[in-house]
Design a binder for these strands. Structure first.
Length: 811
RNA sequence: GGGCGAGUGGCGGAAUUGGCAGACGCGCUGGACUUAGGAUCCAGUGGGGUGACUCGUGGAGGUUCAAGUCCUCUCUCGCCCACCA
């Protein structure tokens, strides 16, 4: 009696089996090669979505494959559990963020298990767990000691809807990355991590990340934004003060016609006493589109040319970058050009494109390219690149300034005025100032339970019992810091914690960490190209410098998977185009869902959802199931390739098996293109179904084909593979079976078909046995009646023979 | 404005890196079985032509015996960064 494929039954059975055998639990093992496979952990929002499914299935295939290849595979999972949505949900559902988060974790863990993911669940962690976030605090204190954590008052990004400050990386198009509310600037005193101290290393080490996608590297390079140039001091006329400017275009120094400084520039406090000008500066537009300026009445002296330049305050000069002051060269900088036109300031051209020196006439726009210097005293006639070098040297020699490098990267603001996060472990004492919480007082626990009438958890600044504390140094009344940490702090080192998730004496057990780190394969969405991936690199370097770990880079190989798309748009609740994985697993099974996600597109590309594509995946598994049951291949177990005799009828199938082994293995090893691996398995199945074994040797080959297909399928559709493995009389888990090896000789076709081209166009085919010499092949080609006709009596210029592929006759 | 990608049938996508373009799947067409088919199986399926053939990888050139693949120019789309001096 043929048994129908019932995915639910099969999947329940094998998930229980894996659990009870603890098949994916792992410990350090010195005699096996390790492989650390990691997917970005999810925020416990409530339910798994298709993006998660795709991400985790890709990771699972890699983890299972590597395990089958004999690696000791670490494959953990956890929860990025702090964050604002929990607070919003609390208001909506009347649940405490902690309760809401825990409920979600429980539900989502169950969902992940239903997908059959091969995690070592004993390593599970949640960042909202005090045993996790205490080490956030511990690390913060270490960074504080080293001056890598500090507090400063500055202009920060404020999202009024979220009620908190955001880091620069979390502002997209001047709006909040979570809720899209327009950001306003606020002057606040906030905690920062000095990521800029690592700017140079973060940039340089990008070169070592050979297995990262080029565009992620480019985005990080861009974000760090290194520029080399010079700082030059301009004396203020009639004063002993001066203004220092930064430029990368010192070759245009002689073209400077005015100086622009930022609104917050300290020089203004010193020298501007005229209330009217002060007022005008205050009323400058904040709109970055509109360039506005105010003349200060001051003049600065260009130390090279001696020119007297008016000093303007401009709304587009940033105090935070460089020196907060620039020399303006309208002829060679478009922004300065527009400003000069608007305020009728002079334009002085000093760089001329080659062979166009006497272009003459007023400029239409700034010329920002390279060229030859003119009107530049002793530097005239030089190429701009050469001039940059010589002028920089001259400036240093004459003590007018110095070479300098600036970065776009700013320090990472980590203070959040929110409840659901890691409390920052410092207190404020009237006499002792900022006092770090001593190590033995950690963790500073997040108080539970205090909510306002709307069920909104109170920010810590409103929780009196939390704030009140005795100073750790003088014992007097003091107050706790009430800001919590950015949740990106939590996720910047969780992959390190996984190595020793329950270690009590520190954030990491160095022995375990040095064994597992770095992560060999990291998989996640491109949206973290700068945010999480930059912060994690920073943290890894800090932990290394603290002496906790050896690795200097966290992720050796990075795969950024594409989005899941439906009807041309990313799946989202607001667009109403979401597909719920739960429902699909119940009707088709996890294996079908997995196969579809892997087959429909290569991992790095976007995946267009298709209901009928899913059906196709289901059919494929059903056909495989059917052929095993129909042929009642229920005994015999594993078959050794060596024991197989060639059967005339099925030599084609035998060859196909080996070709499939090669194709599947190479597809995974080369670039994780699982779509082509599965396509190859489908081809093999098609050929199995077309085979009619009659002899006993043929039946062996047939069974070998099915056995191989089942093993090769296992990383992709693990449950059905286990079931069929068992059904075909094998003992134990299919994941204990060795990965099959192909035999080069068997892969080769005995009879090959050469194509015959005339002048590069296909004109005929030639069936020959493999391994014939060129001379014979050529003779055979010319003997072909059709070819004879084509060639006729035209003179043959050349015959190109490509082994095993074609003959090209040029006439 | 700068950076990074990508353009292949009706659709998702293949093509051992210069060697039969369209593997595999979806969809579609016809057939079988069926009370029925949105199940299953069989056959077909890039365009044009009865045909031999011919045209085809965004477009235009080029290199080559041979180009989706390499070079030059160009168009379109997507993503990222953007007064960073």
């Amino acid at each position: 009696m043929e048994e129908k494929y019932k995915p639910k039954k099969v999947e329940d059975k094998w998930q229980k089996f894996w659990d009870s055998e603890d098949l994916f639990g792992v410990i350090e093992s010195p005699d096996r090669k390790k492989f650390y496979c990691l997917e970005m952990f999810p925020y416990p929002s409530g339910r798994i979505h298709m993006g998660h499914v795709r991400n985790y299935v890709i990771g699972d295939v890699i983890a299972r494959y590597k395990r089958m290849r004999g690696f000791n595979v670490l494959h953990p999972m956890g929860w990025d559990a702090f964050g604002l949505p929990a607070e919003n949900a609390a208001i909506k559902h009347g649940l405490h963020p902690s309760k809401w988060t825990r409920n979600n974790i429980d539900y989502m863990r169950m969902q992940l298990k239903k997908l059959g993911l091969s995690y070592d669940w004993k390593r599970e962690l949640a960042t909202c767990d005090p045993e996790y976030y205490r080490w956030n605090q511990w690390l913060f204190l270490r960074m504080l000691e080293r001056g890598l954590a500090y507090k400063k008052k500055s202009s920060v990004n404020w999202c009024s809807s979220c009620g908190t400050v955001l880091a620069n990386e979390q502002v997209i198009d001047n709006a909040c990355w979570r809720c899209d509310t327009t950001i306003v600037q606020k002057k606040l005193e906030q905690w920062f991590f000095r990521i800029t101290a690592y700017a140079e290393e973060l940039l340089n080490d990008l070169h070592t990340l050979k297995n990262w996608p080029e565009r992620v590297l480019a985005m990080q390079r861009n974000w760090i934004g290194r520029s080399e140039g010079v700082e030059v001091t301009f004396r203020i006329e009639g004063s002993d003060l001066s203004v220092r400017i930064f430029t990368t275009r010192q070759d245009t120094l002689y073209g400077a016609t005015f100086v622009s400084i930022a609104r917050e520039h300290p020089l203004l406090d010193e020298l501007i006493k005229d209330e009217k000008i002060v007022e005008e500066i205050k009323s400058l537009s904040d709109d970055p589109e509109e360039k506005e300026g105010v003349f200060t009445g001051l003049y600065a002296i260009n130390p090279l040319s001696g020119d007297k330049l008016p000093v303007w305050v401009s709304n587009f000069v940033l105090m935070e970058y460089g020196t907060g002051a620039i020399m303006a060269v309208p002829a060679h900088d478009q922004r300065d050009f527009e400003f000069a036109i608007k305020y009728d300031l002079p334009v002085k051209q000093v760089i001329f494109p080659e062979r166009a020196e006497s272009a003459g006439g007023p400029l239409e726009e700034a010329y920002e390219g390279e060229g030859v210097l003119l009107n530049s005293s002793g530097f005239s006639g030089l190429q701009s690149d050469k001039a940059r070098e010589e002028i920089a040297n001259f400036i240093e020699k004459e003590n007018l300034g110095c070479k300098n490098t600036n970065y776009r990267l700013r320090d990472w603001g980590i203070s959040r005025q929110r409840y659901w996060g890691t409390p920052i472990p410092v207190i404020y004492c009237k006499t002792c100032g900022i006092v770090p919480v001593p190590e033995n007082e950690l963790p500073v626990l997040l108080p539970e339970g205090e909510q306002n009438v709307d069920n909104a958890p109170l920010p810590l600044s409103d929780v009196k019992s939390f704030i009140a504390v005795k100073c750790y140094e003088c014992g007097e009344d003091a107050e706790r810091e009430t800001d919590t940490m950015d949740t990106f702090v939590d996720s910047s080192w969780y992959f390190i914690r996984y190595c020793s998730p329950s270690f009590k004496d520190g954030p990491v057990d160095s022995r375990a960490v040095d064994h597992w780190m770095p992560v060999d394969q990291y998989i996640g969405g491109i949206e973290h190209a700068v945010l999480h991936l930059l912060y994690s690199r920073f943290f890894t370097k800090v932990l290394r410098d603290i002496g906790l770990i050896k690795a200097g880079e966290p992720f050796d190989r990075l795969l950024t998977q594409g989005m899941v798309i439906k009807d041309g748009a990313k799946m989202s609740k607001s667009k109403g185009n979401v597909v719920d994985p739960d429902l699909l697993i119940d009707t088709y099974g996890a294996d079908t869902l997995r196969i579809f996600c892997l087959f429909a597109a290569p991992p790095e590309r976007d995946l267009e959802w298709s209901d009928s594509g899913l059906e196709g995946a289901y059919r494929f598994l059903n056909r495989l199931w059917g052929i095993v049951c129909k042929n009642s291949i229920t005994s015999g177990g594993e078959i050794e390739f060596k024991s197989l005799k060639k059967d005339k009828d099925l030599s084609g199938l035998l060859r196909k098996i080996h070709q499939t082994i090669r194709k599947v293995t190479n597809s995974i090893e080369r670039d994780y293109h699982f779509n082509t691996a599965i396509a190859a398995l489908m081809e093999l199945l098609n050929e199995i179904m077309a085979s009619k074994p009659s002899t006993s040797d043929g039946k062996d080959i047939f069974r070998f084909a099915i056995n191989s297909a089942v093993i090769l399928l296992a990383p992709f559709a693990p449950h059905i593979a286990e079931e069929l493995w068992e059904k075909t009389g094998n003992k134990g888990s299919v994941f204990g079976a060795p990965w099959p090896v192909w035999d080069e000789e068997t892969v080769k076709e005995e009879e090959i078909e050469l194509i015959i081209q005339i002048n590069g166009k296909v004109r005929g085919k030639l069936g020959i046995t493999a391994g014939l010499d060129d001379e014979t092949i050529s003779q055979k080609a010319f003997a072909d009646p059709k070819i004879k006709e084509y060639v006729g009596d035209k003179p043959v210029k050349r015959v190109v023979i490509v082994k095993g592929r074609l003959v090209n006759i040029v006439v």
